[in-house]
Each structure stands twice: as structure tokens, then as C-alpha cells.
Design a protein around this nucleic acid. Structure first.
Lengths: 215, 215
DNA sequence: TCAGTAATTATGCAAGTGTATAATTAAACG
DNA sequence: CGTTTAATTATACACTTGCATAATTACTGA
């Protein structure tokens, strides 16, 4: 008879874990947290639901892991662009701001994903820790870029003032990112990066221009 | 025997509806959308769950009504402060910015409430309409205040530029509001309003100071 | 005072939820 | 090739969910 057609494939734990995390993220982005049930996640990852419990001690665990994965991904995506060599510190900062306000970082799905997670932040302590950490990580990178740009422009400042500038610029980026993601179509293409650059520039007192060579 | 102790009280429809909406909002703020089940809502409103279906055609209907109620409330709360007579347009704008970054508008519960709703915005068309409307309503009020402040400072501008200023300032306020609500304790008291005023001032090119006479 | 009516309760159900547990089975190893 | 082990499936259970339906009950107006 027809015999050894293997009924499933065994994957290394880390690989399967990531597959489950990715399935979770895409599902939350599509249907919200409510739509991300263990059964749906399993179906999307093409496994049976029991496997989730085998790799994660609970669904909450999977959600937490997915959150961490997503936030890390977003920060990396934004920072990567500014890490590529630029002529000046000013351009590096500009690239950072721009990257955060264009796809793939600025994306309707990412925003609703982020909003979905935010609810759980107040309930779960681990979620709160991740949130706090990723927020500060992002803001600290921004602060370094701002400090460099100011030094380059020969503007002196205090630590306290620098902190406030970082908070403000972070808020601009976050706010524009959110609105752009929550209301796609309400802004013309290229409008948000342009506004972001002008605003951040105005706040820190250094005129910023688009970092050329990016699509 | 002990007789006519009425087993429940009949309330006018509008009043009971609002009571149910308020119960829903407080519940979502506390436990997230997930925790806002019909049974819990009914318990908090001190009625039985069947009543919800009697006043709202579905739970989705109740959620939508609660969203509209909340957003309207937030916008009014922010705008109210700037509507009270101020010496100058600059002060009116300052009061608007400040009000959005202090309690009761800036509040951990409000932020998570807002985040909870945001997920539903992509699924439900009515939710999306409400979101769009409240966003533009808020931004339009801001734009008027900015326009007045600029005129007062004898700064001329174009409609396009004015639009972009409003978007930027809105983003600053939203961003700071979000971060302050999501990370209570990460900012010193009074820090966010101060940063908000400086940033909005820097963006539009008009120095703003705290509108005195507010607690 | 006494029906009439709409608000409210009481009860139940079908579907979906996360999770536990035992039975399979693919792969690694000697 | 046979054994072992962990990945994976299969099945079931207890619980919650939103919703429907029928039975009560407080209020109103003639």
C-alpha cells in the first residue's frame, strides 16, 4: 500500500517557536488580540494546537514572546537606516526620523499590533517590563543622535535639556507614526516624513533635510 | 408580611444607557476589552445581563457607543480649558496644550482605554468613522488656535503649511499623552506639559509659556 | 383602580475558549 | 536494525462567552 508519507515534520525548538510567534503576530495584526486564539494560531503555523502548549507554558507566554519579538524588530528596523554610514551626524538623525515614518515601520498592521499589546501592558508585569525597556532603548538611541547633531552644530546643552529634547522628538515620531498607521489615506505620501523632519529640526534647533539615497 | 420592597427600579432609557456605557468604560479601562464581558458590565451597572441586550442591539453596539462617549469626553475636556477667556491667543493655545498633558486628560486608564478601542477601529466601519471624526475634530481645533496665535504674532503662512503645523503639534501632544499614560512614573510631575509647550512653541515659531491660574 | 406596556429578570443554549492528558510518530543514536 | 526520546497529534474537559427567549414586575394613564 501507500506507505511512509510522514504525517508531520519535526523541527528544532527555536525554529518552531519563531514560526509560532510569527503566526501569532500576523494573526493579531489582522484580527486583533481577540482573533488570535490558540486554534487559529496553530492553523496558521500549520500545526495542531497542542504543540503550542508544548513550546510555551501558556498562551500568555506566547503573547509575551511575540510582543518582545515585535518591539525588537521595530526598533532595529528604525535604527538600521541611521547606522549605515552617513556624511554627517545631522544626516544620521534625519535618516532615523525618516525611517520611523515610512514603511515598513510605518504600517497599519504594526500600529494595531502595537495597540493590541498595549492593553496587556497594564495587566502583565512582564509585558510592562518589555514595554519600558523597548521605549527607553528607542529613546536612548534617539538621544545619542540628537547629542551628536547638536555637538556638530556647536550647540551646547545640559543633560536635563537633552533628555527633554529626546522625549519631545520621540513623541513627535510616535505621534506621527500612530496617526499615519491608524488613518492610512489621511496623509499624502511623503507628508509624514517631511513633517517629522521639520518638527524634530525645529525642536532641537538644527535644520534637518531628507537623507538622500533612500527610496 | 414584609411586602412591597421593589425588586428593581425602572429607569428612563437614556439614563440607563449612559450607566451601562460608564460601566463599560470603567471596566475596559481596568481590565482591557477582554475583561469587559456582558456579565461583568451588568454586574458593575447593578443590573442583570439581559438588560444590555434590551438597550443595545448587540455588545458591539454598546462598545461603539462607549467609544464615541469617551472620545467626545476627552476632546471636550481638552478644549474646555482653552475656551475660558484668556488674555491672548498665545495663552489660549498654551492652555490647550497643557490641558491635554495633565490629569484628567492624561491618565493611565484613558490611554489603555484608547488603545483598547484602537484595535476595533480596523474591524468595525462605524468605529473607524468615529475615530476619523474625533481625530479631525481635535486637530481642527488645534489648527484654529495655531492660526490665531500666528496672526497675533504677525506671522503669515499658507494653508498647506498651517495644516502641517497642526499635524505636527497634534502628534507631539498625542505622543506625550500616550507615553505619559503608558509609563506613569517615568516622568517628573509637570515635565510633560513643560516639554509640550516648548515643543509646540518651537514648531510653530512662537514662544509659549504656561497659562497661569491653573492647578 | 386596573389594565397595558415597556423595563427588567430568569433561564438556557450553542459555540468557542485555554488547557490537560494520553496516544502517536519522526528522528537521533548505539 | 532496534531503542529511546522528544516533538507532534488526538481527544476531551471545564469554563466562559454572547445571545435568545420567556417569564416577571414596576410604572403610567385613563
Amino acid at each position: 500500500m501507500t506507505e511512509n508519507a510522514p504525517k508531520f515534520r519535526r523541527e528544532p525548538a527555536e525554529q518552531r517557536k519563531e514560526a509560532l510567534i510569527l503566526a501569532t503576530l500576523s494573526l493579531i495584526a489582522e484580527k486583533g488580540v481577540r482573533g488570535a486564539t490558540v486554534r487559529e494560531i496553530a492553523k496558521r503555523a500549520e500545526v495542531t494546537q497542542g504543540l503550542i502548549r508544548h513550546h510555551f507554558s501558556s498562551k500568555e507566554d506566547l503573547i509575551t514572546a511575540a510582543y518582545e519579538h515585535h518591539m525588537r524588530h521595530m526598533t532595529n528596523l528604525t535604527a538600521a537606516r541611521s547606522a549605515t554610514a552617513h556624511a554627517s551626524c545631522r544626516l544620521r538623525l534625519a535618516a532615523f526620523v525618516e525611517a520611523g515614518l515610512k514603511p515598513p515601520v510605518l504600517d497599519s498592521r504594526s500600529v494595531s499590533l502595537w495597540a493590541s499589546f498595549l492593553n496587556k501592558v497594564r495587566e502583565d508585569a512582564r509585558m510592562q517590563a518589555i514595554h519600558e525597556q523597548t521605549y527607553h532603548d528607542f529613546r536612548d538611541r534617539l538621544e545619542v543622535l540628537i547629542a551628536d547633531a547638536l555637538k556638530e552644530a556647536k550647540i551646547t546643552t545640559t543633560a536635563q535639556h537633552l533628555r527633554e529634547l529626546a522625549i519631545a522628538c520621540n513623541a513627535v515620531i510616535d505621534g506621527l507614526w500612530m496617526e499615519g498607521g491608524a488613518l492610512p489615506g489621511a496623509f499624502e505620501p511623503g507628508e509624514l516624513p517631511r513633517i517629522g523632519l521639520r518638527s524634530v529640526g525645529a525642536i532641537i534647533g538644527v535644520e534637518l533635510e531628507a537623507a538622500e539615497g533612500q527610496t
